[in-house]
């Protein structure tokens, strides 16, 4: 009987393919159980064992935990409707969502946070889709009176007061009627006169919220409607609405949902 052996380039390709397959299997094998373990220990209490947002603590929270099975993320650096990048997910896990029970997970190591990001992507079949590259935020312009006046004009012309109110306090006509998110849960427009906002206090993050929208909420993407310079004028105008006494330090928990979220996570972690 004659044995057929792969020859030359063909053999190298087969061996290379096998090696890659083994590497991927080993990576997945190492990542999934550990990522799942981190998730179950630190995240499932709010987001639920299946990731559907129905964890045992969800009923105690005003802002309901995200449904991670939907694959719809508010805080992205990618266009509206697209999946977030790994860096986006890592950032949300690390820095949390301000004003909500999703507190910064800095008690986890960087490696643990990366593992849980890998696990999050297994909770929604949407992650089989390709993730577009992150949109680059252009550099901020210098603040001038003209720029702020332009930002104020953009604010009015873009319909922002309908939800956020004339003064940016989140009390526009639509807000007073009561608004709903894509899960039909009540949602309140951001009070833009205090910081941090959900995404933090960095102007670059507010630029992303306006340009890319917050998927699953009434906040649309303005990428097609406004040019990047108009968005910067708007961001810096909004910054000018925040008095010093309404700027909470980034590194301290906000009273209310953040403190509650921290307590829930600690109790769950310590098995109480």
């Amino acid at each position: 009987m004659r044995t057929v052996r792969p020859r030359g380039r063909c053999r190298r390709a087969v061996l290379g393919g096998l090696a890659a397959l083994l590497a991927v299997s080993a990576h997945a094998g190492a990542q999934t159980p550990e990522g799942r373990h981190v998730y179950e220990r630190h995240c499932a209490v709010c987001h639920g064992p299946k990731g559907d947002g129905n964890g045992e603590a969800a009923a105690r929270l005003t802002t309901k935990p995200a449904d991670l099975t939907a694959g719809r993320y508010k805080f992205r650096s990618t266009p509206s409707g697209a999946l977030p990048t790994d860096e986006d997910l890592l950032r949300t896990v690390t820095r949390g969502v301000r004003g909500t029970a999703m507190v910064p997970q800095t008690h986890l190591s960087q490696a643990e946070r990366q593992l849980v990001v890998g696990y999050l992507k297994r909770l929604s079949p949407r992650f089989a889709e390709p993730v577009p590259p992150a949109v680059e935020v252009p550099p901020a312009p210098a603040i001038t009176p003209d720029l702020l006046a332009r930002g104020a004009r953009v604010y009015r012309a873009s319909g922002c007061p309908e939800c956020h109110g004339d003064g940016g306090k989140g009390d526009g006509p639509s807000a007073r009627k009561g608004m709903k998110d894509a899960r039909d849960l009540p949602i309140v427009p951001a009070d833009l006169t205090r910081q941090p906002l959900k995404r933090g206090s960095a102007p670059e993050e507010t630029w992303k919220s306006i340009a890319l929208g917050l998927d699953g909420t009434p906040m649309p993407s303005y990428a097609d409607a406004l040019d990047p310079a108009d968005i910067w004028a708007l961001v810096l105008f909004l910054e000018s609405l925040v008095p010093q006494e309404r700027r909470h330090p980034e590194d301290r928990l906000l009273p209310g949902e953040e403190v509650l979220g921290d307590q829930i996570e600690r109790q769950h972690r310590e098995g109480r």
Binding site: R72, G159, P173, K177, M179, G216, T217, P218
Partner: peptide, 22 residues
């Protein structure tokens, strides 16, 4: 089907302003 989940329908001259959710 795409987000956001609400759009407006307004005719200023007749004081019509409705938020219409998906």
């Amino acid at each position: 089907k795409a987000d956001p989940n609400v759009h407006g329908f307004a005719i200023d001259e007749f004081n019509v302003k409705v938020d219409v959710y998906r």
